[in-house]
Structures are given as structure tokens and as C-alpha cells.
Design a protein around this nucleic acid. Structure first.
Ligand SMILES: [Mn+2]
Ligand SMILES: [Mn+2]
Ligand SMILES: [Mn+2]
Ligand SMILES: [Mn+2]
Lengths: 155, 155
DNA sequence: TGTGAACTGTAGCCATGGCTACACTTTTAC
DNA sequence: GTAAAAGTGTAGCCATGGCTACAGTTCACA
């Protein structure tokens, strides 16, 4: 006893473009997502290097809250993608590309945090939210953030 | 010929708390990430249901820009987690929990988009960025966004 | 009313990003 | 100088979220 149900009600009235636009947006978000982890690693490694002169897998793991095995696996992906280098048992370093990415990511992170703070978000929430938000902010949005901060006199 | 290198330089001077705080932030971001996909599915299904009265796997797939097999697999996860129901070949529906989640997600999505627009971000960039940002915005930040919009007269 | 088109579902592949367990290397401390 | 501790690396497990290929079901329409 299966009920019938209509399909293809109104020929969709050339509604396709909107569908495609939305699909493109989601695709873009998925791409950004796949880069997010690498960005965080590179940013953190740059931080460790500039602070203590070295970046060791265990430090990276501790700061990210993952096991050292996970950190090592991801670092090897960084190396595979040309962002990091290093010899066994000798710590991790960033390639030119890695350093360039780190600089961009760091500036973006700071801008997002500053924006949230300027809006009155409490410091810890601003830091925590920025850790996720930063990876999905386009150039256009970054520019808007910067202009807002400028118009407020905050850096 | 392997060079020696110092380790444990300064006993870390009780630097651990900061480490833990940062690790907790990253963990939180990872949790949010795992919920993001389900949120988008639920939001989209609610949209299809309220617009056309039914939500079919193929529609969902087309709007998300994934294959229908991927959509079906994720929808089955929605069902497993108590957010959706439906019989074979009969479309997808939302449970009470699913509908509640959809309402929250939809409101949040709109708020993030409105905020970006208010800052002068071009419409398409605002929509695209919001699709990612929305999943990482805490209650505190949402409140700050709402207050900003209110202070600007934009509902 | 039958049949081809459209849709739905299943199986099985891959990469990512978690984890634990275990083995190996380096550093520290005695 | 050696033994224990700390760090590093590998193997192998799991879930997620993509995909294609193929099989089964429902619908539209001639
Ligand atoms: Mn981040
Ligand atoms: Mn960051
Ligand atoms: Mn989204
Ligand atoms: Mn959304």
C-alpha cells in the first residue's frame, strides 16, 4: 500500500541559476574547510619558531590538543604540500611558501579578533570564534573589517 | 654527523595554562566543524519543505553541489542522529529536534549575512562567507552582532 | 497500460584527520 | 658512561564525507 506523490510540479521555472549559485557557495565553503587545518598548523609552527626558535611535533600537538601521532601525520602532509621541511628527530621548519602563508594567516587572524573585540565580544569568545571564522573570510570581507576598524580609530 | 640540540630550555615558566587554553579553543573549533555539515543539511531540508512541501535527496544533492549518493549517505546520518525521518523513496522530513535546529540555524545564518552586509561586504561575498562563518559564531558573538545591527537601525 | 526516464538506494573505493599501541632515537640525569 | 625519561616515528584502527558504478523503484506520458 504505497501512496502516489506528484513530482516535477511546475517545471521549476528556470530556477536553476539560483540552485547553481548556492551549490557554488557550498563548494567554496568545502574548499576553505580543507585548507583550514593546514593554515592553523602553519600559523602555529611560525609562532613556535619565532618564539622559541624551534617547532617540535610534541609542542604542536600539545598546543592543538591532539595526539603527537596526529600532529606528525599532518606535518608530513605539510611537507608533502611544500609548506614545511625538516629532518627526522630534528623539528619542523617552514619553506618560503609556508612562511608566506603563515604571514597572511596571522594577519587575518588578528584582524578577525580585533573586529570581534571592537564589536564588544568578550576576549575569550573572540579568540575562540576567530579560530574558526578566520578560515572562511574572503578578501572582500577582510577589507570591510579593516575599514570598520579604521573608522573606529582602532588600528 | 648529527648535531646536538638543547631541549627544555627554561622549564617553561608555568606557561602551561596558555597552552591548555589554546588547545581548548582548537578543540572547540573541531567540534563546531563536525556539526557544520549537519546544520547545512537541516537548514536546506527545512527550506525545501517550506518552499515546495517536500525534500528529495536529489534536490538536496543539487543544491549542495554533491552527488546524490553523498546526500543520501549524509541524510541517513541525520536520521541516525534523530534529526530527520522518512521512508524509502518517500522523501525526507525533519523531526521535532530537526525543526528546532533548523530554526536556530536559519536565524543565525540571516544574522551573519545581515551583519556582513551592514559592514559593506558585497552581497554575493556576504552570502558565500556566511555559509562558512555561521558555524563558528558563539552566542556571545551573535549577541554582539545583533546589538550592532540594532544600533544601526537595521532590524 | 507499458515503458523509458528520473529518481533512490547500495556497494565499494579514496583521502582526511582523529586515536592507541609499540618501536626507535635523543636527551637528561645520575 | 649508562639508564631512564622524553620525544619521535610507524602501523593500524575508526568515522566522515567525497566519488563512481550499478541495481532497484517510481513516475510521466505516449
Ligand atoms: Mn583557525
Ligand atoms: Mn588562527
Ligand atoms: Mn553553512
Ligand atoms: Mn547556512
Amino acid at each position: 500500500m504505497v501512496r502516489i506523490r506528484k513530482r516535477k510540479a511546475v517545471e521549476a521555472a528556470v530556477e536553476l541559476p539560483a540552485e547553481l549559485t548556492q551549490a557554488r557557495r557550498f563548494s567554496k565553503t568545502r574548499s576553505a574547510q580543507s585548507g583550514a587545518l593546514l593554515e592553523d598548523y602553519v600559523e602555529l609552527i611560525a609562532d613556535l619558531l619565532s618564539t622559541g626558535g624551534e617547532a617540535r611535533p610534541t609542542d604542536v600537538a600539545r598546543r592543538l590538543g591532539v595526539s603527537h601521532a596526529t600532529a606528525i601525520k599532518t606535518i608530513s602532509r605539510l611537507k608533502r604540500e611544500g609548506l614545511a621541511t625538516g629532518l627526522p628527530y630534528r623539528g619542523v621548519f617552514l619553506t618560503q611558501d609556508g612562511q608566506k602563508l603563515a604571514a597572511r594567516v596571522r594577519a587575518r587572524h588578528r584582524l578577525v579578533v580585533d573586529m570581534l573585540l571592537a564589536l564588544g565580544v568578550p576576549a575569550e569568545a573572540a579568540e575562540a570564534d576567530a579560530e574558526g571564522i578566520e578560515h572562511y573570510v574572503s578578501e572582500a570581507t577582510l577589507k570591510a573589517f579593516a575599514q570598520f576598524l579604521e573608522s573606529r580609530g582602532q588600528s
